[in-house]
Design a protein around this nucleic acid. Structure first.
Ligand SMILES: [Mn+2]
Ligand SMILES: [Mn+2]
Ligand SMILES: [Zn+2]
Ligand SMILES: [Zn+2]
Lengths: 137, 137
DNA sequence: TCCTTATTGAAAAAGATTTTCAATAAGGAT
DNA sequence: ATCCTTATTGAAAATCTTTTTCAATAAGGA
């Protein structure tokens, strides 16, 4: 089922801005801010408004097609999200982000914490930072 | 070594805004935004400027005394950071945040990823979200 | 092709953060 | 205790980011 169907199914429409944002994110190797996405669009002769970039990112995020990546200091930007449980490993120098599959490494920790704190834990944010092969020299 | 010394050591000074921000964070149970901190200050008759709150948060963060906590959607705010390796468990309803000690649960995952991706991994961001005991009803 | 209405984009409004700069005060030196 | 240097403050302005409004447009089902 492609983007068109996923949208139409909910009474939503496949529009130029939505296609453009999606394509840009598909090609990106680093998390992109709304501004950066807008810039890319303009450079590719795709004349869409910044407002629509914001609106599209919000939509795609709630649809689970896009994920927000947090930087160490400020919030970095948005990346395409594969379906399922994933996290990101981000290069501190060039910002390149690779996705990795969530494991159950955390389960013992979660259980211990639920026990100790009385909290229930149902979501987590895990991001790793380091240097990509190219940036290690 | 107290805050005074830590600052003086670097040629920096212990000022009213810095004391006030630190005190407010010490008393807080939820991550606070710069605005929220400023508001607290005013309510406590401590007449400091919002600009200084920003500057102080940046300073305390680079000194490692304060940590920025990311929300699930937007960036939440700042909390006091105990020295050492810690993470936060945040209540999705009332925002209460409890700190927990970093464990070595992640080590196998890190090693596997370094191997598979060629990245070196030296930092990570881990935050857990759930419901605190009070908010479970 | 027509019709409904979701969506767009320009402009304005609202909010958040940073820069500037003269006035102030921290704290080492005398 | 008093000076002196200079780090720091805070008001205002500048800048940047995000949201709201609303008339014009264009998806896409009929
Ligand atoms: Mn963030
Ligand atoms: Mn996970
Ligand atoms: Zn890199
Ligand atoms: Zn709670």
């Amino acid at each position: 089922m492609d983007l068109q169907d996923k949208l139409n199914q909910k009474g939503l429409r496949l529009t130029k801005p939505r296609q453009v944002v999606m394509t840009i994110l598909e090609r990106a190797t680093v998390p992109l801010s709304p501004q950066a996405i807008h810039q890319h669009a303009i450079e590719n002769q795709a004349d869409i408004g910044l407002v629509s970039v914001y609106r599209t990112l919000e939509l795609l995020t709630t649809m689970g097609l896009v994920r927000r990546v947090h930087g160490q200091d400020s919030c970095e930007g948005y990346v395409l999200a594969s379906p399922g449980h994933h996290h990101h490993l981000v290069c501190r120098t060039c910002d390149r982000a690779v996705e990795f599959t969530g494991t159950d490494n955390l389960i013992p920790l979660l259980e211990q914490l639920q026990h100790e704190t009385g909290f229930t834990v149902d979501e987590h944010l895990l991001q790793l930072y380091g240097l990509c092969p190219d940036c290690q020299n």
